[in-house]
Design a protein around this nucleic acid. Sequence first.
DNA 1: CGATGGCTTGATACTGGTCAATATGGGTGG
DNA 2: CCACCCATATTGACCAGTATCAAGCCATCG
Lengths: 243, 243
Amino acid sequence: MATPELKKLFGQRHCDECVLHPLCKPPLVGIEEIERLSGSVLARRPLERDSVLFRAGEPTRSVFISQNGSFKTVAINEAGDEQVIGFYFPGELIGLEGLGDGKFRADAVALELAHVCEVPLPALERVAGQRADFQRQMMRAMGEGMARHQDHLEMLGRKQAQERLAMFLHGLSERQGRLGRDPLQLHLAMSRSDIGSYLSLVIETVSRGLSKMQDEGIIAVKGRHLRVLSPQRLQALAHGDEA
Amino acid sequence: MATPELKKLFGQRHCDECVLHPLCKPPLVGIEEIERLSGSVLARRPLERDSVLFRAGEPTRSVFISQNGSFKTVAINEAGDEQVIGFYFPGELIGLEGLGDGKFRADAVALELAHVCEVPLPALERVAGQRADFQRQMMRAMGEGMARHQDHLEMLGRKQAQERLAMFLHGLSERQGRLGRDPLQLHLAMSRSDIGSYLSLVIETVSRGLSKMQDEGIIAVKGRHLRVLSPQRLQALAHGDEA
DNA sequence: CGATGGCTTGATACTGGTCAATATGGGTGG
DNA sequence: CCACCCATATTGACCAGTATCAAGCCATCG
């Protein structure tokens, strides 16, 4: 849907994939509105694996959308230990937490080669002020962000490691599906230790959990490639229906 | 600061305390803007303890601000078990999660007698569309909501029950202070089991943890009244600095 | 005054964290 | 192109912390 003009204005390549996100979904913002901020909306160079998109504490001047490539956000507490707070896939807004007090609350790190689109806040606010529908989309995007956090909280609320893992995989699968890809074929862009940090489990427990699911014939794992063999049983596990 | 006119327009009583929140803080929105939506912004009757402000699944037509009295939000998963997702104190926006897909994601329940101010979404959007500063405040409020979720995530990330509890109390203390009250004098509006659910601990562990802190002279607890005796040690505990 | 719900305290079992050894595999340099 | 190497992941043995089960306490309310 990304029209040639839209592509040109937003920067360049890959916006076709970005269509997924409400922000980019036409006819959200007409060309003429985009025009008005074309000076400030700019595309970004590719970010390679492990490179940092923004750091906790930095003033929030923009939010970001990955066009392709996934990210993690990592919070570092005063004790110095890291915790993975979220994973972001193409089309999802990154950095919304920073809108609270104007500073990012976590580091954002590319999990693989990625291309992000940077949206400066002034531009965001300007368009939002002029287009009620766009403003609603922004709210919606933030609401979705909060909803994802809530899902994460519910994951951590489950006491059984196996259930958390199952919820995690199930969630990945869903998101994968929404991206139009095969929901049963997961490429884990993140390391085991990222997963562990995200689920508040040590890496050994993650590993054991995956092995167990594999033994039970629910999934097939090989390194960072994972195939869901029985979505039903995976979901059941996620809901704590069985051991 | 709530001028008499403002009071009248918004409904009535207690808006003085609401001043705490950016949304209500003048001169955020001028009287004339308020005027335009005075028809739709309305105050609410008191809600007594345990009464439900909204339920998960209901369409989000409004968000709410408690003028006095605290709330909890409770998510119920498909397995049927409840989990406390958040606590809300006067001046904090409740229901923002609903902006994502237009449905509330959790039940909101009054922990004590409360008075809430209901802000219909159309009104919110209308003013936001007209006043850039108000719109920014909304974003800020949502950002704060996400930040609170992140704090919660960091709490659940700590593996030691004692640390989680300490973080929780420390957080309460801070919020209490921000409300202008004595940060060392906490009235726990929520039950032990609410705390347990929030921290993903069973009620016995919460109880034991509080008792232990009391034995160590960090706090003094009596039922739902709690006094922080040593804020430093509490904070140290929260950061995992010692056992 | 008894009953009820919320909280505390105790004893035991089990899950997951810790420590340690081994395996795997992607990348680099010869 | 192969071999080595280091980072990442898996597996095992053990132990600590918290859930579980159970009993008793305390306060409030009818």
